[in-house]
């Protein structure tokens, strides 16, 4: 039997502020298989962004186990986590987080420059392919400030997929966009999923959540609903 792509067991995340203890995630267990399109939703402060940070190895859990492709990753060193983020995870942020000093092409190439196993030619080819997928090749030499919000997010998606990651983590990818641009970005994610990408998206926009094949709902740090029926049906 194939191992799940992601497997969380009894994950807890506690924040300590002065004398206040906040349980952001409380015994979360979650499995995501390769090829899934999962949305995580819930009200503000329910812990969805925290969960995404843990999935993306951007933060450490307070307790529990996290296996990625069958390997325990919660106890890895920072350096090992960086390698996993670079080669197995792609991020799309709400605020795009493109680097203003770098051109579109350079932004997309950025994660590839941290890899030792790619030649320059390979990097260029992967960048071109990613830009092609998001239809931004014609803007390769532009700087982020010269692009619209929607275009910037498409570039951010290209950057996320350029390294051919195992999973794409998107944190409110349409949160900073108008409806037209939001629709374009969601269509892009749909297409990527159809092409085989595994996507995990945090959103509180019901229309975006509807597009996912599996909907996970959080409330007060707990999974209160996990609708896998659509996936089973699919």
């Amino acid at each position: 039997m194939n191992k799940p792509l992601l497997e969380l067991k009894q994950i807890k995340k506690v924040f300590h502020t002065d004398e206040v203890e906040t349980h952001a995630l409380d015994n979360i267990s979650l499995v995501i298989e390769k090829g899934e399109y999962v949305s995580i939703s819930g009200p503000s402060g329910c812990g969805k962004s925290t969960l995404l940070s843990l999935l993306g190895l951007l933060d450490d859990s307070s307790d529990g186990s996290y296996k990625l492709q069958g390997n325990e990753v919660s106890s890895l060193s920072n350096s090992e986590k960086a390698v996993i983020r670079n080669q197995h995870i792609g991020f799309v942020f709400q605020a795009f987080n493109l680097i203003s000093d770098l051109t579109v092409e350079e932004n997309v190439e950025l994660p590839l420059t941290y890899r030792k196993d790619l030649s320059k030619a390979e990097r260029k080819a992967w960048v071109a392919e990613a830009l092609e997928k998001v239809d931004m090749s014609h803007r390769a030499k532009h700087y982020p400030s010269q692009l619209s919000g929607g275009q910037q997010q498409r570039v951010a998606v290209a950057r996320a997929i350029a390294g051919r990651p195992a999973i794409l983590l998107a944190d409110e990818p349409t949160g900073n966009l108008d409806s037209k641009n939001a629709e374009a970005v969601m269509a892009l994610l749909d297409k990527l999923h159809q092409d085989g990408a595994t996507i995990c998206m945090v959103t509180h926009d019901p229309r975006s959540a509807e597009r996912a094949k599996r909907k996970v709902e959080l409330f007060d740090g707990k999974v209160v609903a996990d609708d896998v029926t659509q996936m089973a049906a699919a």
Binding site: L58, S79, A82, R85, N86, F91, N97, P111, R159
Partner: peptide, 11 residues
Amino acid sequence: IGVRRALGAQD
């Protein structure tokens, strides 16, 4: 710096 690390940059 956070973005770069999220994209896999080592310290």
